[in-house]
Amino acid sequence: MRIFKNLSKDKLATISVTVIVVTIIVGLFAPFFAPHDPNQVNMSLRYASSSWEYLLGNDHLGRCILSRIIYGIRPSVLWVLVALFISVLIGAVLGFLSGYFRGKVDAFIMRVCDIMLSFPGYVMTLAIVGILGVGLGNILIAFILVKWAWFARVIRTSVMQYSELEYVKFSKASGISDLKIIYKHLVPVTFSDIAVISSSSIGSMILQISGFSFLGLGIQAPNAEWGMMLNEAREVMFTRPELMLAPGLAIVIVVSAFNFLSDALQVALDPKLLNSKKRPQQKSPTTTVKIQKKEVAH
Protein backbone atom coordinates (compact mmCIF):
# COMPACT_ATOMS: atom_id res chain seq x y z
CA MET A 1 0.00 0.00 0.00
CA ARG A 2 2.84 2.34 0.91
CA ILE A 3 4.30 1.73 -2.54
CA PHE A 4 1.15 2.92 -4.30
CA LYS A 5 0.97 5.99 -2.10
CA ASN A 6 4.58 6.89 -2.87
CA LEU A 7 4.12 6.22 -6.56
CA SER A 8 1.06 8.43 -6.79
CA LYS A 9 3.14 11.37 -5.57
CA ASP A 10 5.44 10.99 -8.55
CA LYS A 11 3.80 12.47 -11.66
CA LEU A 12 5.94 10.64 -14.19
CA ALA A 13 5.24 7.36 -12.43
CA THR A 14 1.52 8.01 -12.43
CA ILE A 15 1.59 8.72 -16.16
CA SER A 16 3.68 5.60 -16.82
CA VAL A 17 1.35 3.39 -14.82
CA THR A 18 -1.64 4.88 -16.61
CA VAL A 19 -0.05 4.30 -20.01
CA ILE A 20 0.83 0.71 -19.16
CA VAL A 21 -2.53 -0.13 -17.64
CA VAL A 22 -4.44 1.48 -20.55
CA THR A 23 -2.25 -0.36 -23.06
CA ILE A 24 -2.83 -3.68 -21.36
CA ILE A 25 -6.59 -3.19 -21.06
CA VAL A 26 -6.95 -2.01 -24.65
CA GLY A 27 -4.83 -4.95 -25.81
CA LEU A 28 -6.84 -7.47 -23.81
CA PHE A 29 -10.14 -6.18 -25.17
CA ALA A 30 -8.85 -5.31 -28.64
CA PRO A 31 -12.01 -6.35 -30.55
CA PHE A 32 -14.01 -4.05 -28.33
CA PHE A 33 -11.77 -0.98 -28.77
CA ALA A 34 -10.72 -1.37 -32.39
CA PRO A 35 -12.99 0.61 -34.74
CA HIS A 36 -12.41 -1.72 -37.71
CA ASP A 37 -11.27 -5.20 -38.60
CA PRO A 38 -7.45 -4.88 -38.63
CA ASN A 39 -7.07 -7.27 -41.56
CA GLN A 40 -9.78 -5.88 -43.82
CA VAL A 41 -8.18 -4.80 -47.10
CA ASN A 42 -9.68 -1.79 -48.83
CA MET A 43 -7.62 -0.77 -51.84
CA SER A 44 -9.67 2.37 -52.49
CA LEU A 45 -8.34 3.82 -49.21
CA ARG A 46 -4.68 3.08 -49.99
CA TYR A 47 -2.40 5.50 -48.06
CA ALA A 48 -5.40 7.60 -47.09
CA SER A 49 -4.52 10.22 -44.50
CA SER A 50 -6.36 10.41 -41.21
CA SER A 51 -10.08 10.98 -41.30
CA TRP A 52 -12.89 10.75 -38.77
CA GLU A 53 -13.56 7.19 -39.72
CA TYR A 54 -9.91 6.11 -39.81
CA LEU A 55 -8.28 8.21 -37.11
CA LEU A 56 -4.69 7.29 -37.95
CA GLY A 57 -5.22 6.78 -41.67
CA ASN A 58 -4.73 3.67 -43.75
CA ASP A 59 -1.71 1.66 -44.83
CA HIS A 60 -0.56 0.31 -48.20
CA LEU A 61 -3.44 -2.14 -48.32
CA GLY A 62 -5.96 0.37 -47.04
CA ARG A 63 -6.21 -1.26 -43.61
CA CYS A 64 -7.10 0.84 -40.58
CA ILE A 65 -3.81 1.70 -38.84
CA LEU A 66 -5.42 2.44 -35.47
CA SER A 67 -7.06 -0.97 -35.40
CA ARG A 68 -3.80 -2.61 -36.37
CA ILE A 69 -1.95 -0.78 -33.61
CA ILE A 70 -4.57 -1.89 -31.11
CA TYR A 71 -4.46 -5.51 -32.23
CA GLY A 72 -0.66 -5.27 -32.33
CA ILE A 73 -0.59 -4.71 -28.57
CA ARG A 74 -1.27 -8.42 -28.07
CA PRO A 75 1.90 -9.86 -29.59
CA SER A 76 4.07 -6.79 -29.07
CA VAL A 77 3.29 -6.06 -25.43
CA LEU A 78 1.11 -8.67 -23.80
CA TRP A 79 2.91 -11.77 -25.02
CA VAL A 80 6.29 -10.16 -24.51
CA LEU A 81 5.26 -9.44 -20.92
CA VAL A 82 4.18 -13.04 -20.42
CA ALA A 83 7.48 -14.34 -21.83
CA LEU A 84 9.42 -11.86 -19.72
CA PHE A 85 7.51 -12.76 -16.59
CA ILE A 86 8.15 -16.47 -17.05
CA SER A 87 11.84 -16.04 -17.76
CA VAL A 88 12.30 -13.65 -14.81
CA LEU A 89 10.46 -16.11 -12.61
CA ILE A 90 12.70 -19.01 -13.64
CA GLY A 91 15.77 -16.76 -13.34
CA ALA A 92 14.71 -15.51 -9.93
CA VAL A 93 14.04 -18.95 -8.49
CA LEU A 94 17.38 -20.30 -9.70
CA GLY A 95 19.20 -17.07 -8.88
CA PHE A 96 17.90 -17.10 -5.31
CA LEU A 97 18.70 -20.79 -4.91
CA SER A 98 22.28 -20.42 -6.05
CA GLY A 99 22.93 -17.02 -4.48
CA TYR A 100 21.54 -17.95 -1.10
CA PHE A 101 22.57 -21.57 -0.65
CA ARG A 102 25.88 -21.39 -2.54
CA GLY A 103 28.04 -24.49 -2.65
CA LYS A 104 27.17 -27.34 -4.98
CA VAL A 105 23.74 -26.01 -5.94
CA ASP A 106 25.34 -22.77 -7.01
CA ALA A 107 28.12 -24.46 -8.96
CA PHE A 108 25.66 -26.67 -10.84
CA ILE A 109 23.18 -23.92 -11.73
CA MET A 110 25.93 -21.56 -12.81
CA ARG A 111 27.56 -24.13 -15.10
CA VAL A 112 24.21 -24.70 -16.80
CA CYS A 113 23.84 -20.93 -17.15
CA ASP A 114 27.33 -20.69 -18.60
CA ILE A 115 26.43 -23.26 -21.22
CA MET A 116 23.23 -21.42 -22.11
CA LEU A 117 24.99 -18.06 -22.26
CA SER A 118 27.86 -19.32 -24.38
CA PHE A 119 25.55 -19.45 -27.41
CA PRO A 120 24.81 -16.10 -29.04
CA GLY A 121 21.18 -15.21 -28.24
CA TYR A 122 19.96 -14.71 -31.78
CA VAL A 123 21.51 -17.93 -33.02
CA MET A 124 19.92 -19.85 -30.15
CA THR A 125 16.54 -18.35 -30.92
CA LEU A 126 16.89 -19.15 -34.61
CA ALA A 127 17.90 -22.70 -33.82
CA ILE A 128 14.98 -23.21 -31.46
CA VAL A 129 12.54 -21.74 -33.98
CA GLY A 130 14.13 -24.01 -36.59
CA ILE A 131 13.42 -27.04 -34.45
CA LEU A 132 9.97 -26.07 -33.16
CA GLY A 133 8.72 -24.36 -36.29
CA VAL A 134 7.64 -20.86 -37.20
CA GLY A 135 5.20 -18.89 -35.07
CA LEU A 136 4.89 -16.38 -32.24
CA GLY A 137 4.46 -19.08 -29.60
CA ASN A 138 7.71 -20.74 -30.55
CA ILE A 139 9.59 -17.47 -30.58
CA LEU A 140 8.34 -16.76 -27.09
CA ILE A 141 9.46 -20.22 -25.95
CA ALA A 142 12.83 -19.54 -27.53
CA PHE A 143 13.02 -16.20 -25.68
CA ILE A 144 12.30 -17.84 -22.36
CA LEU A 145 14.91 -20.52 -22.98
CA VAL A 146 17.53 -17.96 -23.94
CA LYS A 147 16.82 -15.29 -21.35
CA TRP A 148 16.37 -17.17 -18.09
CA ALA A 149 20.08 -17.92 -17.78
CA TRP A 150 20.94 -14.26 -18.02
CA PHE A 151 18.35 -13.31 -15.40
CA ALA A 152 19.53 -16.10 -13.12
CA ARG A 153 23.09 -14.78 -13.36
CA VAL A 154 22.22 -11.20 -12.55
CA ILE A 155 19.82 -12.06 -9.76
CA ARG A 156 22.30 -14.47 -8.20
CA THR A 157 24.96 -11.77 -8.01
CA SER A 158 22.53 -9.39 -6.38
CA VAL A 159 21.31 -12.01 -3.89
CA MET A 160 24.88 -12.99 -2.99
CA GLN A 161 25.79 -9.45 -2.23
CA TYR A 162 22.77 -8.93 0.03
CA SER A 163 22.92 -12.25 1.85
CA GLU A 164 26.35 -11.26 3.20
CA LEU A 165 24.78 -8.43 5.18
CA GLU A 166 24.52 -8.54 8.93
CA TYR A 167 20.76 -8.48 9.21
CA VAL A 168 20.57 -11.62 7.12
CA LYS A 169 23.22 -13.18 9.34
CA PHE A 170 21.23 -12.17 12.39
CA SER A 171 18.08 -13.82 11.06
CA LYS A 172 20.02 -16.95 10.19
CA ALA A 173 21.59 -17.04 13.64
CA SER A 174 18.20 -16.62 15.33
CA GLY A 175 17.00 -19.72 13.51
CA ILE A 176 14.49 -18.05 11.23
CA SER A 177 13.70 -20.29 8.26
CA ASP A 178 15.46 -19.77 4.95
CA LEU A 179 12.20 -19.24 3.10
CA LYS A 180 11.20 -16.48 5.48
CA ILE A 181 14.61 -14.80 5.23
CA ILE A 182 14.45 -14.84 1.45
CA TYR A 183 10.92 -13.53 1.43
CA LYS A 184 11.33 -10.85 4.09
CA HIS A 185 14.91 -9.69 3.67
CA LEU A 186 16.17 -10.60 0.24
CA VAL A 187 13.19 -10.18 -2.09
CA PRO A 188 12.55 -6.52 -1.17
CA VAL A 189 16.17 -5.45 -1.61
CA THR A 190 16.76 -7.41 -4.79
CA PHE A 191 13.40 -6.36 -6.21
CA SER A 192 14.67 -3.04 -7.49
CA ASP A 193 17.53 -4.79 -9.30
CA ILE A 194 15.07 -7.24 -10.82
CA ALA A 195 12.73 -4.42 -11.85
CA VAL A 196 15.54 -2.58 -13.60
CA ILE A 197 16.86 -5.55 -15.55
CA SER A 198 13.39 -6.67 -16.56
CA SER A 199 12.24 -3.27 -17.69
CA SER A 200 15.41 -2.75 -19.67
CA SER A 201 14.91 -6.05 -21.45
CA ILE A 202 11.26 -5.29 -22.32
CA GLY A 203 12.48 -2.82 -24.92
CA SER A 204 14.93 -5.20 -26.51
CA MET A 205 12.39 -8.04 -26.48
CA ILE A 206 9.75 -5.94 -28.25
CA LEU A 207 12.31 -5.00 -30.88
CA GLN A 208 13.52 -8.58 -31.24
CA ILE A 209 9.98 -9.89 -31.74
CA SER A 210 9.63 -7.29 -34.48
CA GLY A 211 12.90 -8.42 -36.00
CA PHE A 212 11.76 -12.02 -36.13
CA SER A 213 8.43 -11.01 -37.58
CA PHE A 214 10.36 -9.22 -40.28
CA LEU A 215 12.27 -12.40 -41.06
CA GLY A 216 8.94 -14.14 -41.40
CA LEU A 217 9.55 -16.30 -38.34
CA GLY A 218 7.15 -14.70 -35.89
CA ILE A 219 3.71 -13.28 -36.53
CA GLN A 220 2.40 -14.37 -39.89
CA ALA A 221 1.67 -11.79 -42.53
CA PRO A 222 -1.88 -10.49 -42.32
CA ASN A 223 -1.85 -10.28 -38.52
CA ALA A 224 -0.83 -6.99 -36.99
CA GLU A 225 2.34 -6.49 -35.00
CA TRP A 226 4.13 -3.22 -34.33
CA GLY A 227 7.51 -4.28 -35.64
CA MET A 228 5.97 -5.68 -38.78
CA MET A 229 4.03 -2.48 -39.31
CA LEU A 230 7.30 -0.60 -39.09
CA ASN A 231 8.78 -2.88 -41.68
CA GLU A 232 5.85 -2.41 -43.99
CA ALA A 233 6.16 1.34 -43.60
CA ARG A 234 9.89 1.14 -44.29
CA GLU A 235 9.22 0.40 -47.93
CA VAL A 236 7.62 3.79 -48.39
CA MET A 237 9.81 5.56 -45.86
CA PHE A 238 10.69 8.47 -48.15
CA THR A 239 7.37 8.99 -49.84
CA ARG A 240 5.13 8.50 -46.84
CA PRO A 241 7.20 8.83 -43.65
CA GLU A 242 4.10 9.39 -41.53
CA LEU A 243 3.30 5.68 -41.75
CA MET A 244 6.26 4.95 -39.51
CA LEU A 245 5.02 7.38 -36.94
CA ALA A 246 2.21 5.37 -35.36
CA PRO A 247 4.00 2.05 -34.72
CA GLY A 248 7.28 3.83 -33.94
CA LEU A 249 5.70 6.08 -31.36
CA ALA A 250 3.74 3.20 -29.90
CA ILE A 251 6.95 1.26 -29.28
CA VAL A 252 8.80 4.28 -27.90
CA ILE A 253 5.97 5.25 -25.56
CA VAL A 254 5.44 1.78 -24.14
CA VAL A 255 9.15 1.08 -23.72
CA SER A 256 9.76 4.42 -22.00
CA ALA A 257 6.73 3.93 -19.77
CA PHE A 258 8.23 0.68 -18.51
CA ASN A 259 11.62 2.29 -17.97
CA PHE A 260 10.18 5.27 -16.10
CA LEU A 261 8.08 2.95 -14.01
CA SER A 262 11.09 0.90 -12.97
CA ASP A 263 12.97 4.05 -11.97
CA ALA A 264 10.00 5.29 -10.01
CA LEU A 265 9.53 1.91 -8.36
CA GLN A 266 13.08 1.99 -7.11
CA VAL A 267 12.48 5.34 -5.47
CA ALA A 268 9.09 4.36 -4.12
CA LEU A 269 10.47 1.18 -2.60
CA ASP A 270 13.57 2.64 -1.03
CA PRO A 271 12.95 4.54 2.19
CA LYS A 272 16.33 6.23 1.85
CA LEU A 273 15.73 7.72 -1.59
CA LEU A 274 12.24 8.78 -0.67
CA ASN A 275 13.38 10.95 2.20
CA SER A 276 16.37 12.37 0.43
CA LYS A 277 14.01 13.58 -2.25
CA LYS A 278 12.26 15.84 0.23
CA ARG A 279 15.34 17.12 1.98
CA PRO A 280 17.19 19.05 -0.70
CA GLN A 281 14.29 21.47 -0.91
CA GLN A 282 14.78 22.46 2.70
CA LYS A 283 18.53 22.60 2.43
CA SER A 284 18.75 24.43 -0.87
CA PRO A 285 18.82 27.98 0.57
CA THR A 286 22.06 27.29 2.43
CA THR A 287 23.74 25.87 -0.66
CA THR A 288 22.90 28.93 -2.72
CA VAL A 289 24.33 31.11 0.01
CA LYS A 290 27.54 29.13 -0.13
CA ILE A 291 27.80 29.60 -3.87
CA GLN A 292 27.31 33.31 -3.51
CA LYS A 293 30.06 33.48 -0.94
CA LYS A 294 32.38 31.71 -3.32
CA GLU A 295 31.56 34.16 -6.05
CA VAL A 296 32.30 37.07 -3.77
CA ALA A 297 35.65 35.62 -2.79
CA HIS A 298 36.80 35.31 -6.37
Binding site: L165, E166, Y167, K169, F170, A173, S174, K184, H185, P188, V189, L269, D270, P271, K272
Partner: peptide, 14 residues
Protein backbone atom coordinates in the same frame (compact mmCIF):
# COMPACT_ATOMS: atom_id res chain seq x y z
CA UNK B 1 21.04 -14.50 19.16
CA UNK B 2 23.78 -12.14 18.07
CA UNK B 3 25.00 -8.60 17.66
CA UNK B 4 27.56 -8.01 14.94
CA UNK B 5 30.51 -5.80 14.31
CA UNK B 6 29.22 -3.85 11.33
CA UNK B 7 26.34 -1.72 12.54
CA UNK B 8 25.77 -0.15 9.13
CA UNK B 9 24.04 -3.20 7.75
CA UNK B 10 22.69 -4.55 11.02
CA UNK B 11 19.11 -3.55 10.21
CA UNK B 12 17.21 -4.18 6.99
CA UNK B 13 16.92 -0.78 5.24
CA UNK B 14 13.25 -1.49 4.52
Amino acid sequence: SAVFQDYKSSINPF
